[in-house]
Amino acid sequence: MMSFISYLVNGISLGSIYALIALGYTMVYGIAKMLNFAHGDIIMVGGFTVFTAMSTEWCPVWLSVVIGIIVCTLLGVIVEKVAYKPLRNASPLAVLITAIGVSYLLQNVALIIFGSASQSFTSVVKNVAPVTIGGVTISMETIISIVVSVIIMICLTFFINKTKAGKAMLAVSEDKGAAQLMGINVNSTISLTFAIGSALAGVASVLLCSSYPQISPYTGSMPGIKAFVAAVFGGIGSIPGAMIGGILLGVIENLSKAYISSQLSDAIVFLVLIVVLIVKPTGIMGKNINEKV
């Protein structure tokens, strides 16, 4: 029973990291109707930035984390301006391939700078002892991941539903043309979405690299795909869906790793996704859109 609880807590922790990444996917999809395949690689860039900043003598841990998040945010906005904005009205497939191109680009730049071998990442909370609650030992990384994710999700929900900029994002994702007629600046709203999504990826990169203390140019791709799955799982375009999808995915992955087979855990995750989509084709929280003739 104790081990079950500890697997569950670790699963929630991993899941909340997935949820943060999935939020970026789902917000960008909701607003720009594109699958941002480069999102996973922004995590990797964030990880390397924090890694580099922390390896310098003078930079304290908190500052490295802030630098990492700022770099991710800027990178997200720049990528949007340079690669995606010119293709705003092109076919979705063209945008998808461009996103894949950006993903290759980021990976290979990292490969040239840092080499292909994975390097060990020092956890941002390395000197804090694990906490024992009722016989279950939980590492500090796990607690921080969960707490930070919950805080971010609450803030994000508040931001989107209560502030002007957040409501503008909802309006643009609902109907771009009508939003423009209401005086919303669509371009800056999309940039803002990319900025927030990438900042979340930056936070996720710190949490991910602290929990699994390794980093290589390919670090981002598998969590990126998993988070993408989580976003679809919860209903792509839906923000609460991404949160629920991410956490469920993390729990399923960790429990199947513990109780079924560690090699097959990825297959089980995808199998659950497929079953969910076949039963409910738009994901858990997705809206059913009837096609009109």
């Binding site: 690669a83 010119p86 092109a90 461009t98 894949i100 950006v102 290759y104 990976q107």
Partner: peptide, 24 residues
């Protein structure tokens, strides 16, 4: 060496932009 995949990525992005962006 490592630069070839970098060039590949840039070529990919530029080709997609050039073929599909309304401006180009």
């Amino acid at each position: 060496g490592d630069y070839r995949m970098l060039i590949y990525a840039i070529v990919l992005i530029v080709m997609m932009l050039f073929n599909n962006a309304p401006y180009f």
